[in-house]
Amino acid sequence: MSGSARDEILSRVKRASGGAAACERADAWEQTRPPPVRPAIPGDVAAYFLTKAETNLMSIREIGSLADVPSAVAQILARANLAPDISVAPSLRDLPWPATMEVRDAKARIGEKLTVTRAVAAIAETGSVVLCSGDDAPGSLNYAPEVHVIVLDRADITPYLEDGLAKVKATYEPWPRAVNVVSGPSRTADVAGIVVRPAHGPKSVHLLITSSKP
């Protein structure tokens, strides 16, 4: 049944549009489309990103290198008054976590309080971070916890959405299952238009900015 539905729909579509020339036009599209209209990013791209991210209610802390992540996380835990039982991306598992902290590196649990993941890129235009799922990054860690800590290297800050996604394309083969672009804590306005944080995702998002890449 599905096969015939496919043929029927496609033949109707093709009768109404395209024809033999459609493939050629599709191949040439990226070259023929005019350049995107987008907002200007004045001044330093990283500074612009940081301002935008703060407007999006992400907290920002500049740390030196990955080795400084555990102590920064410990402070966030203490401030939020949460038990030292966290889930981190596998690539962060081997950091010098304090012995008092329970650190797992699997996918998210139902009652997940705090997770730590790594951004592939950041986007100045929208003040967002780009997170990709993979064998060292369970996507569920980005949505399940109450507190989400994201480690981002300053060198990975890009100007526009196109640039951030181009970085994904350059880094991953094949394209990751999930590319999550996150721009702050989860929110909703579905009760009488009043903004409430969080809805289903994290209620706070913290960025730890490293400067370890050249």
């Binding site: 967002s128 799922s133 993979g134 064998d135 369970p138 299952r177 999930a178 590319v179 721009s183 995702g201």
Partner: peptide, 21 residues
């Protein structure tokens, strides 16, 4: 709004090696 809080590109089932999905 300039942008939504979340924007995701989802491209299929769990890949070999993926931890979730």
């Amino acid at each position: 709004m300039e942008f939504t809080t979340y924007m995701s590109l989802l491209s299929g089932k769990k890949l070999a090696g993926d931890i979730d999905g």
